[in-house]
Design a protein around this nucleic acid. Structure first.
Lengths: 184, 184
DNA sequence: ATTAAATTTCAGAAAAGTCAGAAATTAAAG
DNA sequence: CTTTAATTTCTGACTTTTCTGAAATTTAAT
């Protein structure tokens, strides 16, 4: 499959962004390609379009399936697997957020819970360090909670919520006007 | 400086999380260490505590200063630089979000704007691809907007907002009940 | 100015991550 | 059951990133 220069730029940039967020470049590129494609693509089409090794595509597709971002479909009269991803960016966003929560936030929560518990009876730890560990735990729990909310919202709601941010701020922001930018 | 086992676990885990999100392990570890420390630390104390090379610490500290996460302070009667970070996790969160927006989201917005513009007159591009590019742009713009709101909120407000998520959902969620989980 | 301490730069070693091609496996068709 | 197509696994080469130790530079004190 021949990519238009526009599509090519999109795919390449997405690959770069992937690397910045801890995602393999090829994985991100394949995902971008499937996103733009008008139909499910088979592995060889991806190989041809992106110019990477067949094996690389195979591994990357497995990775994307592991994330729940790509699924296999079949085309009539063709025995090869074909791959597609969501058409709606918001769906992609939600899946990514959900998976990162599961893979990184949740384990971090476990560690933080252990740490705060352990901290109570750790004589080497200062009160202020104890306090900061507790704060980190509270923070992460708020984040996890926020994530869970997020994933329940339908895309349109989410979008409206984001656009609505400034108004929410006006409602909620009244009470704590302390700039609170000073340190230690 | 000798770390308690609890603090050690925290620092090590934070280093691992860093690598998962595209941040250098040492950089993340140093940041975690400064966060837990009761006072500003000098470079040699960091070297000693984390067991990494002096030069590595120097470069990592520069990186952290580049992110606006660490600042240099001086201790009376000591000519060495000492380093500290925010005490409040929410401050850290806001700085990181802000910086990532500036470094990754904004450049992505530029690319997406170019792409959607180019797409209009690109005959190789299907209508559906054009539409998806536009959707991506809209999405990223919403995200950028949301980020900007976020950074203006004082920590306490942000926290309340997150905890309030479920209620917001009930208000906003009424109109679009389409589960909309199907693909292509 | 000279000396000494502190910090940064730099070049290369070490480690981690990425990727291609061959070999092995699986699945389908005849 | 055999043949062939499709896919996956595995190994090693290559690339990039991370990290160290030495040298160079900067900064401060005498």
């Amino acid at each position: 499959m021949q990519l238009s220069p526009t599509a090519q730029r999109f795919v390449l940039h997405w690959g770069e962004m992937g690397t910045r967020w801890g995602v393999n470049r090829t994985v991100a590129q394949i995902h971008a390609l499937l996103f733009l494609a008008d139909r499910p693509l088979n592995a060889d089409e991806i190989v041809e379009t992106l110019g990477v090794a067949r094996s690389n595509v195979s591994v990357s597709l497995k990775e994307l399936q592991g994330w729940g971002l790509v699924r296999v479909v079949h085309v009539m009269g063709d025995r090869r697997d074909h791959f597609q991803t969501f058409e709606d960016v918001w769906d992609i966003f939600r899946v990514v957020v959900e998976e990162r929560k599961r893979r990184e936030i949740d384990p971090t929560l476990t560690v933080l819970r252990d740490c705060t518990l352990e901290a109570e009876s750790d004589p080497m730890l200062s009160d202020s360090a104890r306090r900061k560990l507790q704060m980190s735990l509270d923070f992460m729990e708020s984040m996890a909670e926020g994530y869970d909310e997020l994933k329940r919202l339908p895309p349109a709601t989410l979008m409206r919520l984001l656009h609505f941010g400034s108004k929410v701020q006006r409602w909620f922001g009244r009470k704590d006007e302390a700039p609170d930018n000073e340190r230690k």
